[in-house]
Computed example of a mutant assay.
Amino acid sequence: MQNGIYCATFSITGESEASVVVLRDGSLSGGDSGSYYIGDYSVDSDNFQANVKIKVHTKNPELFYVFGDEEGEVIITGTATETSVTATGTSPQLEGITFDCILRLIAKQ
């Protein structure tokens, strides 16, 4: 998996949201217009795993926030190639809820 900037698409209950994520030597950071993400990731062969903390920085009253105003954690596991990840995410705070995640390399670093 290459270091770089990735377009991240998250889908849950039929709704999708896109953001930008930077993957670099096991560290993950990124965000969108309302939240930021910080965490770490590993790739073993083609197995991808990331542990990510999410925090709302700008609340939009028209949007639903899965974690509310609090910081949340997600665990993302899936399959990696040199330039993409197809994965599923879960959270210890949201028992029984999963989401789909696709990362696609848009710029090398």
Rank of each mutant, 00 (worst) to 15 (best):
83 T>L: 06
89 G>Q: 03
71 E>L: 01
53 K>A: 06
107 A>M: 03
33 S>M: 05
103 L>W: 14
48 F>S: 14
62 E>D: 09
28 L>M: 07
73 E>V: 14
52 V>T: 11
49 Q>S: 14
100 D>S: 11
76 I>D: 08
77 T>G: 06
61 P>R: 09
60 N>K: 13
105 L>T: 03
109 Q>P: 06
43 V>P: 04
27 S>Y: 08
9 T>L: 08
84 S>N: 05
53 K>W: 02
43 V>K: 00
28 L>H: 02
32 D>V: 03
52 V>M: 10
98 T>Y: 12
81 T>Q: 11
82 E>I: 02
59 K>I: 11
45 S>C: 08
100 D>L: 08
61 P>W: 05
21 V>A: 04
35 S>M: 15
82 E>W: 02
29 S>W: 06
35 S>Y: 15
92 P>I: 05
71 E>C: 03
36 Y>L: 09
58 T>Y: 07
10 F>R: 11
100 D>G: 07
37 Y>F: 14
61 P>T: 13
95 E>L: 12
27 S>N: 14
28 L>P: 02
52 V>H: 04
35 S>C: 15
52 V>Y: 05
48 F>H: 08
46 D>N: 15
7 C>T: 13
63 L>F: 14
53 K>V: 02
51 N>I: 13
54 I>E: 06
92 P>W: 02
80 A>W: 04
46 D>L: 04
64 F>I: 10
4 G>V: 10
1 M>Q: 15
69 D>Y: 11
6 Y>S: 12
77 T>S: 14
103 L>Y: 14
67 F>Q: 11
6 Y>D: 12
99 F>P: 03
55 K>P: 01
25 D>E: 08
25 D>S: 04
45 S>E: 13
69 D>M: 12
17 E>I: 15
29 S>V: 12
98 T>Q: 15
69 D>C: 09
51 N>G: 13
